[in-house]
Structure formats: C-alpha cells, structure tokens
Amino acid sequence: MARAVNNKRRAVVTLIAWAVGIAIFFPILYTVLTSFKTEAEAVASPPSFLFFDWTLENYAEVQERSNYFLHFLNSVVISLGSTVLGLIIAVPAAWSMAFFPKKRTKDILMWMLSTKMLPPVGVLVPIYLLFRDASLLDTRTGLVIVLTMINLPIIVWMIFTYFKEIPGEILEAARMDGANLWDEVVYVLTPMAIPGIASTLLLNIILAWNEAFWTLNLTAAKAAPLTAFIASYSSPEGLFYAKLSAASTMAIAPILILGWFSQKQLVRGLTFGAVK
C-alpha cells in the first residue's frame, strides 16, 4: 500500500498543512480567546493572543443581561424537536422505499429532494402570513414545524441510503425464523439501522441548530434560538467584542463537537448519497 516516503518531504508537507489548518481555524480560535478577555483588552492594540488576564466574567454577564440560557434552550428544543419529529415521519417512509421499491419509488425520492431545492424565500410570505394567523410566530412549535419540513427530505434520503445497505436476505431470514412484521422491525431492522439513524440524527441536529433563515424571520424575543439571539449583537450601539465572543463560543461549541464526530455522515447527507 503506502510507499516509503522520505521523512524530509513529509515534514515539509506536515508544516504546510498545519499552517493552512491553523489559518482556517484561526477566526474560531481568536473568538474563543477573546471571550476570556476584558472588553478593554478585546479591542487593545496591539492585540494580545495568550498573555492577557484570563477572565470568565463575559460568560456570566452574557447570561445576566440577556437570558442566554433561554435562547440556548430554544435552540436545543427546536433542533432536537424537529429532528426527532422528522425521524418519526421519515423512518417508515424510508423503510417502505428501501425494502419495497416500486416503479415510482425513484420518482418519489427525487421529488422529495426537489422540495429541498426550493428557495425558502419563495414561500416566505405565505408561511409568514399563515404562521401569523395561526399564532405560530415566535413560538418554538412553529419553528419545530418549519425545520422538520425543510430537513425532512434530507432525513428520508439519508435513512433510505442506510436502509439500502441492509441486505434483504437478513429480513427474509427473520421471516423464515417465524418473525412477523413487528418482530422483524423490532429485533432485526432497528438494531441494524441504529448507527445510520444515529448519524442522521446528529447531522440533522447540526443543520437545524445553524439554520438561519426561518429562525431569523419567524422569531422575535420569546422563541429566538441562538442564531437569532447572536444576530441581535449586530446592532451598532455598542461593540462588546468580548461578550459577543463569549456568546458565540457557547453557541458554536456544542455543534463543533457534534460536527467533528459526524464528518463522514456530513458528506453523505449533504450530497444525498452522490458522493460516498
């Protein structure tokens, strides 16, 4: 397999790769560092990178001044809620298409995808008006509904590709062993599909957590998740770099960690299986 590569070349390539990697990561790193500075240090010139008085006061203040926890909770509820709801709808559909393909199955899948390609702005006005009339504006329920629907095609698609990888013979073996449809789903299909469902869950939480069109347009103070809450820092009346950084760090940290775990699924999910 691998050829002997001389170590000198490897050292040079390693150096370049690390330099590029750190450069790309730098804005995130700098944000995290700034979150531990005082506001004065955050805008000091020359900027300090490591040798400043580390402080946690920004984190405390962000919570005190703006009820950060509420927005964090909104993000959790909305992304988890829409993902779980999406899975409940998607798993049976994907099961049906993967194990009982019909002539139309392919068309249905393609059509589902095409709804994902609809630009949100094309339905912004009616959704806004419908939500206003149904008193769903600025509610978690409303956002859960929207995010479930916009991510449903991706969930169906991902679960479908995972189900496709389960050999049909195993399900038939279960049938021969006397399992009825329910046993088959509970004892054989579900345990085998769990890794795939888990990674779909992960990816979808990431997508929902970061969704920033509907969350910005359909929420105000009450149901605003972190995307919308952070956007409120764009007002020019005061530049609170350190607090912005603290709020940002808390907003991206959980998803950054989840994201690193789901690199592989990311490719699969976002390309609808076109690249594996």
């Binding site: 990697g21 804005p27 970061n210 920033a212 950084s245 690193w260």
Partner: peptide, 19 residues
C-alpha cells in the same frame, strides 16, 4: 488538521458573519 479545516462549516452563519 482535518478537524481544524472542517470547523468553519459548523459555525452558525450569524456568528461567522459577526465575528
């Protein structure tokens, strides 16, 4: 290095823009 390079994709758009 891979993790460092991938990270920006997971940053929510509003955070990225404001930073």
């Amino acid at each position: 290095v891979r993790i460092l390079v991938i990270a920006p994709f997971f940053v929510m758009p509003t955070v990225s823009a404001l930073v």
